[in-house]
C-alpha cells in the first residue's frame, strides 16, 4: 500500500470512533504494545528531545525502502508514533521525503504535532523525512 492509501485507511478506522475517549483508548492501546525499537537504539544518539516527552528514532534500509523503529516514554506519544510508523515505514525513501501527512489533522490529533506541544513529534516527523531524503540520495 502507498503512503496515502495507508493514511486513508487510518482515517476510515478513526471515523468509527464516536468520541475522543474511544479514540484515545485506541491510541493508548497502540502505545502499550511491545517496544517499537531495539533497546540498543534508545541512546543519546537516537534521542529527540522534547520538553514534555522524549522520543527515540532509528532508520534503516531494506532495499530501497526505509524501515523506521521508534519509541517514547509517554504512551500517547508512543501510540501516535505507532501510527506514523505504520504510514511511513517500509516505503520508498523518496516517497517518505515528499510525503504529506494529512491523516494526523483528519483524525483530530493535530495538536499533538504542534511545535508548541513540545513532545518531540514535530522533530521526529522532520527527522523521518530527512532520513528519507538522505537515504534516497545515497541510493
Amino acid at each position: 500500500m502507498s503512503i496515502n492509501e495507508i493514511q486513508d485507511e487510518i482515517i476510515d478506522e478513526f471515523s468509527l470512533f464516536s468520541d475522543w475517549m474511544e479514540k484515545y483508548e485506541y491510541i493508548i492501546d497502540l502505545g502499550k504494545q511491545l517496544p517499537l525499537i531495539d533497546e540498543k537504539y534508545k541512546d543519546e544518539e537516537h534521542l529527540i528531545k522534547g520538553c514534555q516527552s522524549r522520543v527515540w528514532l532509528h532508520a534503516g534500509l531494506d532495499g530501497d525502502k526505509v524501515v523506521f523503529t521508534a519509541d517514547s516514554d509517554a504512551v500517547i506519544t508512543k501510540g501516535i508514533i505507532a501510527l506514523l510508523i505504520r504510514v511511513l515505514s517500509n516505503q520508498p525513501a523518496e516517497e517518505v521525503a515528499k510525503s504529506d501527512l494529512y491523516f494526523i489533522g483528519r483524525i483530530g490529533l493535530k495538536e499533538h504535532l504542534s511545535p508548541t506541544r513540545s513532545n518531540g513529534l514535530v522533530s521526529m516527523v522532520k527527522q523521518m523525512k530527512m532520513y528519507g531524503l538522505a537515504l534516497h540520495a545515497k541510493n
Binding site: W20, Y24, I28, Q52, A74, V75, I76, T77, N119
Partner: peptide
C-alpha cells in the same frame, strides 16, 4: 507508571 504528558493530555480533553 504514568507519564505526566499522558495525564495532562487526558485532563485537557
Amino acid at each position: 507508571g504514568i507519564h505526566p504528558y499522558d495525564l495532562g493530555t487526558i485532563l485537557d480533553k
